[in-house]
Amino acid sequence: MASASIPGLFHQVLGNFSVEDGVYHDDKRMRHIFVDPDDDLRGTNLQEGIEDYNPDTRPTSGQGELQPMTSLLEWMRRHQADLEEHDILQISDNGRDRRLDIDFFGQRGVFCRLLRAVETPDRMEILVTLCNGTYYMETFKVKPTSAVDANYCFKNFERHLTLVEGAHPDINLPEDSYYSAVMKTQCERYKLILSYGVDAERDNPDLVPPGNYIDIKTRYQINSEQNKNNFRRYTTLKWWSQAVIAGIPEVICGWRENKKEQVILSSVELMKTEHLPLRAPMMSSGRRFWEADACFETFQTLLDNIKDLIKEDDPRIVHRLELPEVMKGKGVKKRLQARRFKLLEKRQDDYAILPEWYLREVLWIENRESKQ
């Protein structure tokens, strides 16, 4: 499936899986079917029942929580025949092991952050392992400590928009319960495999995934010029990067506001992913604050950068890469465009991106001493 607005960007959903209470299931039990909202939904108290809510309170460390790819790798192990059929899993030139005909491999989060790096001055650290020609990447997800109310409002809004196996989803499902897609993405010269949580699907036989996927969001109603600027400059970029890299054509937003000590759903807005760049404000230069073509240009450059920095093809070496913070102020755009990764010291602990069972069963790599 080609993106309607980005030349050279193509998506193909390879399969799906569910994770329930942290347990992998090779099925669609956590699939959410989208239900078009009606007018009666406006005015809903999105905090109703919050006193009984049990949020996931797992601690984080460093700059956030490391997002391992265990479930994605498990899907790869169970679907080797499908990967061979799509000519993704191939015999290596040496004839002794196998390789993926894929350049970069990871969860959606790492690719989203690279996609918006040209407009995001924050520091970014990623972990990378090069194995049989494929770069496996992980990143850190910052988990806000004060986002319980916002997370509950999102779950409540989602509950009103979706059905799971014919019933409303449980609002108290923990963070480690979700439904995911596994996707191959062609981004100009690079082939990617990524996985991501699917918020909802339209139950329409005429739409082929990801064309029937929908991202669900909630946000406080814009009530000031500053809020408007923040939404148009930063939120639209974040939502666009998450949707476009996964080929998701629509984003639905529940706008909420405070009324009489309640958080009320004031309106619902359906946004086309391809139109989100048009909501970025125009600057005096005649260009918008952020633009899709600039994001993809820098995205490709950073992928080139990763390949230039990491040459050691060893599944048991975990490299640390840092994209330094950029100081704001005059000339920030040029500094962001020129920013590149720095190679930090390799991880010295026993952490590995690729578990031994994946190396052995999928890539046919036997346990052997590291080249490190």
Score class of each variant (00 low, 15 high):
residue 91 I to D: 04
residue 268 V to W: 02
residue 9 L to G: 05
residue 146 S to W: 15
residue 96 R to A: 08
residue 155 K to P: 04
residue 129 T to F: 01
residue 92 S to I: 00
residue 361 E to Q: 09
residue 50 I to M: 10
residue 143 K to R: 14
residue 17 F to S: 02
residue 302 L to I: 09
residue 25 H to Y: 15
residue 334 K to W: 06
residue 35 V to R: 10
residue 40 D to N: 13
residue 143 K to L: 13
residue 8 G to E: 02
residue 263 V to P: 02
residue 5 S to W: 02
residue 157 F to A: 03
residue 359 L to I: 02
residue 84 E to L: 04
residue 95 G to T: 05
residue 344 L to N: 07
residue 102 I to G: 00
residue 263 V to F: 02
residue 43 G to C: 03
residue 51 E to P: 03
residue 157 F to L: 06
residue 298 T to S: 15
residue 138 E to L: 08
residue 266 S to K: 11
residue 184 K to Y: 07
residue 360 R to S: 09
residue 295 C to K: 03
residue 56 D to Y: 08
residue 230 N to S: 13
residue 243 A to T: 13
residue 341 F to N: 04
residue 291 E to N: 09
residue 3 S to N: 13
residue 288 R to D: 10
residue 342 K to H: 11
residue 230 N to L: 15
residue 281 P to T: 05
residue 137 M to H: 06
residue 88 I to Q: 00
residue 202 R to L: 13
residue 255 W to S: 04
residue 316 R to N: 13
residue 177 S to F: 08
residue 298 T to N: 15
residue 6 I to Q: 07
residue 369 E to V: 15
residue 171 I to R: 00
residue 39 D to C: 14
residue 163 L to I: 09
residue 89 L to V: 01
residue 95 G to H: 06
residue 89 L to R: 00
residue 50 I to K: 04
residue 312 E to K: 11
residue 269 E to Y: 09
residue 296 F to A: 07
residue 294 A to K: 13
residue 367 N to T: 11
residue 17 F to R: 03
residue 248 I to L: 06
residue 250 E to G: 05
residue 114 L to P: 00
residue 355 P to F: 06
residue 205 P to Q: 07
residue 209 P to K: 01
residue 16 N to R: 10
residue 228 K to M: 11
residue 60 T to S: 11
residue 97 D to Q: 01
residue 197 G to H: 14
residue 291 E to W: 04
residue 60 T to I: 12
residue 185 T to N: 02
residue 166 G to T: 10
residue 158 E to C: 06
residue 199 D to Q: 05
residue 213 Y to T: 08
residue 281 P to L: 02
residue 280 A to L: 08
residue 246 A to E: 11
residue 185 T to V: 15
residue 80 Q to L: 07
residue 345 E to N: 14
residue 267 S to G: 08
residue 57 T to R: 14
residue 237 L to G: 06
residue 87 D to V: 08
residue 366 E to W: 08
residue 29 R to K: 14
residue 292 A to V: 12
residue 287 R to W: 06
residue 346 K to R: 14
residue 200 A to I: 04
residue 120 T to S: 08
residue 217 K to C: 04
residue 26 D to Y: 05
residue 356 E to K: 06
residue 300 Q to A: 13
residue 64 G to C: 05
residue 217 K to G: 03
residue 166 G to A: 08
residue 200 A to T: 09
residue 150 A to H: 07
residue 129 T to E: 03
residue 75 W to Y: 05
residue 75 W to T: 03
residue 134 T to A: 04
residue 103 D to W: 01
residue 125 E to N: 12
residue 146 S to R: 14
residue 197 G to T: 11
residue 319 H to P: 01
residue 248 I to H: 03
residue 36 D to F: 12
residue 354 L to Q: 00
residue 109 G to S: 15
residue 81 A to F: 10
residue 52 D to E: 14
residue 97 D to N: 05
residue 29 R to N: 14
residue 364 W to Q: 08
residue 93 D to P: 01
residue 270 L to W: 09
residue 106 G to Y: 05
